[in-house]
Amino acid sequence: MAGQPYMRVENLVKRFGPFTALAGVSLEIFPGEVHALLGDNGAGKSTLIKILAGVHRASEGQIYVEGRPVTFRSPRDATAAGIGTVYQDLALNQLMSVTRNFFMGREIKNRLGVLKMDEMDRIAHDEMLKIGIDFSDPTQAVGTMSGGQRQTLAIARAIYFGAKVLILDEPTSALGQKQQMGVLKTIKKVRKRGDIAIIFITHNEIHSRLVADRYTFLALGKVIGAGTRDSLEHGEIRRLMAGGAEMADLEQELESV
């Protein structure tokens, strides 16, 4: 065990009417680690991160941040507790500059209410440099950036505004091969800082093996397997990825079609 978890989730249950999306999920999130959250469509990944991000409230169970029980009534509460979520759509505006996107909604202004553009440019540049992109011109529009760079911008923004837990919702999907590697590199750089915990949601077993320290597998709203990188066999990961069904069974089923 590597120290104390920054965030602990105990027995989270979420019901939407008669439908149980999460049926008792527990997680431990450690700073300086990448926690891969894997599972098929409908496994409950989205529901889980929406509860962690304060979008939904859990029906049962408890979230602890630094050992203290917390209740998130809104995304704002979650952000204040240090949970930064980077959704798939990234919440970026294409026509606006890198800096204006970086500080969107949280601009730095002087006493007269005028933006400190130079300072904001510098911070945006430096923060992105820290995790691996050197932007010579933070006044360029986000629309000119590649998908991977946009991910980096969104991640840098979340970290700058105080994220201690960074939730990345399928950051590598919908990207080209090279850009996927860029994002994984960014994840590694954030991990190296040592003070930020990353929850990495993905479909891709290979990507998770490249960066993750710890795994949790979800299927039908339950944790069907969890463990550290060393404790899980390669074959075991693949089996759990498929929602617990034996690969052999699947192969057989496919054969019979």
Partner: peptide, 11 residues
């Protein structure tokens, strides 16, 4: 530009 993105950032 994109009002959902703006809203998500607290605008």
């Amino acid at each position: 530009d994109d009002k959902e993105a703006a809203r998500a950032n607290g605008v």
